[in-house]
Design a protein around this nucleic acid. Structure first.
Lengths: 197, 197
DNA sequence: CCCTCATCTTGTCATTGCCAAGTTTCTTGA
DNA sequence: TCAAGAAACTTGGCAATGACAAGATGAGGG
């Protein structure tokens, strides 16, 4: 049944809208995202999205949440695929973060504008993604690779750095090898600058 | 002549619009900025802004540019007002940066979203502001406070961190004292992590 | 003094977000 | 099985917005 007439119920509208939205923002920027245009692209009426998202803002939040889901998964995979040492794992996780930033710069920007830190309960998926970093930092402290200190505080510092680098990279103008070694330097600096003893 | 009727020529529309716009975005966010509303606030017709800004985007760019002017001035003042040591000056400059972020978080966000790095020629004022940081780093290397290396590379790393911290702060949810000590830690980490020898 | 041009005004259009009310399909439970 | 009832989607409409066109106003240079 490939060429059937459009059924009254799309069946998958929510996901389809999110997919289209993600493509759109990555191509034209978040501010130009229009619900009506989205509906047109997906092939439904201009008010159909309302059944799934009360608001334009709600659509954006859902987009951010989905982004955090993927980011979290990616960070976990990076961590688990790396060697046993703290430095290796931290480097892998941060590299995973940067990879994400490279592949979906606008989405990442949107995710950050939702302010996932601070009030952590706002986006559970965000909290989970950030926990990967926080936990790893905690390990670093207990392993003695980092000087004793509040893991969350370390996490904020590192998170800020990663985000800044991601922004830099998303802004373009830097070669991939340059960004790789930049990230590598940042992690080294962070570890050396906070080494115990 | 306090109660005069509105003259046909405002005389200062451009600046008035920028002022009003800055107040508005800081209160309600950039996305809710409306040219028509702005015109209403300033007391001109809904198409008057067009004489000074071809576009809504042009208004935002002008806003960013003005922001970089002020930021540059503030950074220079911070640098010149600090002690002679590299650490002192670097700390002062970064602190100035963060102060700016605290006082005008939304503006700073807007400035960064214009992506002033990479293509430096885009906003001359941005290049000048960033030069303060780059130059200082260069001093640090020649003074031997930092291990030998490319000043621009150091600059990128530090700039990324500062921006990430600023974003964090702009996003809100952090107390000013927390941010202050966070920034202090960041600078210390950076210097320690890149110390010569 | 007049002419020119930047500045500002009114009028208009397409687009957008959001809401209301109706239609179609799925589901659920008696 | 079938009849509510809920969920998903449609058409219609409203106020607001950005952008454009054409005209009014006035400041300043020749």
């Amino acid at each position: 049944m490939p060429d059937e007439a459009r059924p009254y119920h799309h069946g998958n509208l929510r996901a389809a809208l999110l997919d289209a939205a993600e493509r759109t923002i990555e191509k034209s920027g978040t501010e130009r995202l229009s619900l009506r245009e989205l509906a047109r692209v997906v092939g439904v009426s201009h008010a159909a999205p309302r059944a799934h998202f009360t608001d334009r803002q709600a659509l954006l939040v859902a987009l951010a949440e989905r982004g955090f889901d993927r980011l979290g998964a990616q960070l976990k995979a990076a961590r688990d695929g790396a060697g046993p040492g703290f430095g290796e794992r931290l480097r892998a996780v941060i590299a995973g973060f940067i990879t994400f930033a490279n592949s979906r710069p606008v989405l990442l920007d949107l995710m950050f504008s939702a302010k996932p830190y601070g009030d952590k309960a706002r986006l559970p998926a965000a909290a989970e993604a950030l926990a990967v970093v926080y936990d790893l930092i905690g390990d670093g402290v207990t392993e003695g690779a980092l000087a004793p200190g509040d893991p969350e505080r370390y996490g904020l510092l590192l998170y800020a750095w990663a985000q800044g680098l991601a922004s830099l990279i998303a802004g373009g103008g830097l070669e991939p090898e340059v960004t790789d070694s930049l990230v590598s330097d940042a992690v080294s600096t962070f570890i050396r600058g906070n080494a115990a003893g």
